[in-house]
Nucleic acid binder design. Structure first.
Length: 467
RNA sequence: GGCCCCAUCGUCUAAUGGCUAGGACACCGCUCUUUCAAGGCGGCGGCGGGGGUUCGAAUCCCCCUGGGGCCA
C-alpha cells in the first residue's frame, strides 16, 4: 500500500479565478480523485497589498461552482509567517543561507539588477536584512517531470536567491516548499511557468532533508492570438462564463480536454468517467489555445442532455433578469417554451433573445422576411387562417397543423406559403421552433391578435405604396 | 542577454518505428425539414525546415527556425 496522494491548488487572492488557474485546479482535483487522494486548498496571501478576502471568496465560489471541492481546512500563508522565519533561521544556522543587505544606492538602480550583499547581522542591527539561500556553484539539480520527463539545471545558472525579504515576508519559492512539506503534498501539479522555480525549490527540500514531491508541469493556455491568456480575451473570470450561461459540467469537460485526452475519440466525457481515466502521463506538453467556439458547442451538448425541467430552472434567472418573465403566468409559459428552444441554444443567456416574442408583442417584422414572405395575396391567406383558427375549440399543435394544411390544400398552395407568413406575423422572425408548437404555447387569442395586427400592417403598407 | 520548455489540419487532439496520418470544433456543400437548430452524408485542411539512425520515422538523435516561460 503506497502513501496517500495529496495535492493542492494554491491561488493568490489577488485576482479572479481565470481559466488557466481553473484548469490547474481541475487537474489537481481529477488526479486526487483518480488516486483516491486528497485535494487541498492553500491561499497564498502574503502579498497583503494586493490580496483581498473578497477575491478569496470569488475564487472559492468559482471552484465550488465547477465542482472542485477541497478536502481539508484551507491553509493561509499569512498565518504562517513565523514558521517561515523559523525555518529560514534554521538554514542560516546550518550555513545554507545568509543575511544580506541592500545598500540604498543599489535600490536606486534602474532596470533591475539590484544586489543584496552578504553581511554579518551583528554589524547591521536595525537595518533591513533579507535572507538569501546559498546555491552551490557546482553540480546540477534535476528532476523527472511526470509530463515532461527529465529536466536538468546547472546550479551555477541558478545562483543564490532571496527566501525572506527584508520586511520578513517569505518569497514564493520558500513559502511553497515549507507549506507543501507541512501539508504533506506528494505531487505538485502546476503551470509550466513554474518549471524554472522547481530547481530552487528542490534545493530547499534538500537543505532540510525533506522528501521531494513529484512534479507535473502543465502546458499554458493561450488566447486566440496565441499569446498568454489575459483580460483582453473577453471573459477573464470563470464566473463570467457562468453568468453567460455556460454550465459548470460543460466548462469542466472543456477544460479537462484542453491538454489532456482520454485516448479515445470522445469529446463529451462525463465527470465520473474522467475521474476513472485521468492520467497525468497523458497530459500534452504544448500550450493550447482556448477555443471559445468549442466551449460553446460542448455547452450546447450539455444543455441538450439535461432534462427540460432542469434547464427551465437554470435558464429562468436569465429571462427574469432580462425583464421578460415577471409573473407566475410568465413562468408557466416559459416552462413550455424551454423544450422548444433547448436544442437551439448554445448559452443559457440565448434564451433571452430567442424567447422574447413569447412575452412581448411583435413590434417589427424581419426585413428580409417581409420581402420574402409578405408578398401579394398574403393578407387574404392570413385572413382565412384567422377565420379558421377562431373556430378551433382545441388550440393544440395537431389541430393548428391540420387547419393550416387543410387551408393550403384548398387554396392550392404549398403549406410553406402559409407557414412562413404566419411565422413572421406571429414572431416577427423567419426562424425559430416549429410553427405549430410555438403557436400552441402562445395561445389562441394571442396568435389571432398578432395575425390581425399583421394583416392591418400589410393593408396600411399597401395603401401607402398604392397612392 | 542567460537558462529552461515546446512544435501533427485555422483550433483542440489521436498515433507510443510499420495500413491512403484518425476524430472533434469551426468553415463549405448536399440531405432531412415549415424556417432555424439538431441529425445524416460529403468536402476543405496538418506532421515548421534540414541532416542523420533504420528495411521503414509524425514518432528516436543532432542542427536550424519559430513560439513560450523564468531570471536578470
Amino acid at each position: 500500500m503506497s502513501k496517500e496522494v495529496r495535492v493542492r491548488f494554491a491561488p493568490s487572492p489577488t485576482g479572479y479565478l481565470h481559466v488557466g488557474g481553473a484548469r490547474t485546479a481541475l487537474y489537481n482535483w481529477l488526479f486526487a480523485r483518480n488516486q483516491g487522494g486528497k485535494f487541498l486548498l492553500r491561499i497564498e496571501n502574503t502579498d497583503v497589498k494586493r490580496s483581498s478576502k473578497e477575491m478569496e471568496e470569488y475564487i472559492k465560489e468559482a471552484m465550488l461552482w465547477l465542482g472542485l471541492n477541497w478536502d481539508e481546512d484551507i491553509v493561509y500563508q499569512l498565518d504562517r509567517l513565523e514558521i517561515y522565519r523559523k525555518f529560514a533561521r534554521e538554514l542560516i544556522e546550518k550555513g545554507l543561507a545568509y543575511y544580506c543587505y541592500t545598500p540604498p544606492e543599489e535600490l536606486k538602480k534602474e532596470g533591475g539588477g539590484v544586489e543584496c550583499f552578504e553581511v554579518d547581522p551583528a554589524k547591521y542591527q536595525g537595518k533591513p536584512l533579507a535572507i538569501k539561500f546559498r546555491v552551490p556553484n557546482e553540480g546540477t539539480t534535476e528532476f523527472d517531470d511526470i509530463i515532461r520527463g527529465h529536466i536538468s539545471f546547472r546550479n551555477k545558472d541558478i545562483g543564490d536567491f532571496v527566501i525572506v525579504r527584508s520586511d520578513g515576508i517569505p518569497t514564493y519559492n520558500f513559502a511553497v516548499v515549507v507549506d507543501d512539506h507541512y501539508m504533506g503534498i506528494t505531487h505538485v501539479i502546476r503551470g509550466e511557468d513554474h518549471i524554472s522555480n522547481t530547481p530552487k525549490q528542490i534545493l530547499i527540500y534538500q537543505a532540510f532533508d525533506w522528501e521531494i514531491p513529484e512534479f507535473a508541469h502543465l502546458p499554458m493556455i493561450l488566447g486566440p492570438d496565441k499569446k498568454r491568456l489575459s483580460k483582453r480575451h473577453g471573459a477573464t473570470s470563470v464566473l463570467e462564463y457562468r453568468d453567460e450561461g455556460i454550465l459548470p459540467e460543460a466548462l469542466f469537460n472543456f477544460l479537462a480536454l484542453l491538454g489532456w485526452s482520454p485516448g479515445d475519440n470522445r469529446e463529451i466525457v462525463p465527470k465520473d468517467e474522467m475521474i476513472k481515466l485521468f492520467d497525468l502521463r497523458r497530459v500534452g506538453k504544448r500550450a493550447a489555445v482556448f477555443d471559445l467556439d468549442k466551449l460553446h458547442w460542448i455547452n450546447s451538448e450539455y444543455i441538450r442532455m439535461k432534462a427540460d425541467e432542469e434547464i427551465y430552472r437554470l435558464a429562468l434567472p436569465y429571462v427574469e433578469k432580462a425583464g421578460l418573465v415577471k409573473t407566475e403566468e410568465d413562468r408557466e409559459r416559459f416552462r413550455k417554451v424551454v423544450p422548444l428552444l433547448k436544442e437551439r441554444v448554445r448559452l443559457l443567456k440565448d434564451f433571452i433573445d430567442l424567447s422574447e416574442y413569447f412575452f412581448k408583442d411583435v413590434e417589427t417584422y424581419d426585413e428580409k422576411g417581409v420581402k420574402k414572405h409578405f408578398k401579394e395575396g398574403v393578407e387574404e391567406r392570413l385572413r382565412l387562417l384567422v377565420e379558421r383558427l377562431e373556430n378551433l375549440d382545441s388550440f393544440d399543435e395537431k389541430s393548428i397543423e391540420n387547419v393550416v394544411r387543410a387551408l393550403a390544400e384548398e387554396l392550392g398552395v404549398s403549406a410553406a406559403k402559409i407557414i412562413h407568413p404566419t411565422r413572421l406575423a406571429v414572431t416577427g422572425r423567419t426562424f425559430g421552433p416549429g410553427l405549430f408548437e410555438l403557436m400552441a404555447v402562445l395561445g389562441k387569442d394571442e396568435c389571432i391578435k398578432r395575425l390581425k395586427k399583421a394583416i392591418t400592417w400589410l393593408e396600411e403598407r399597401k395603401r401607402e405604396k398604392g397612392g
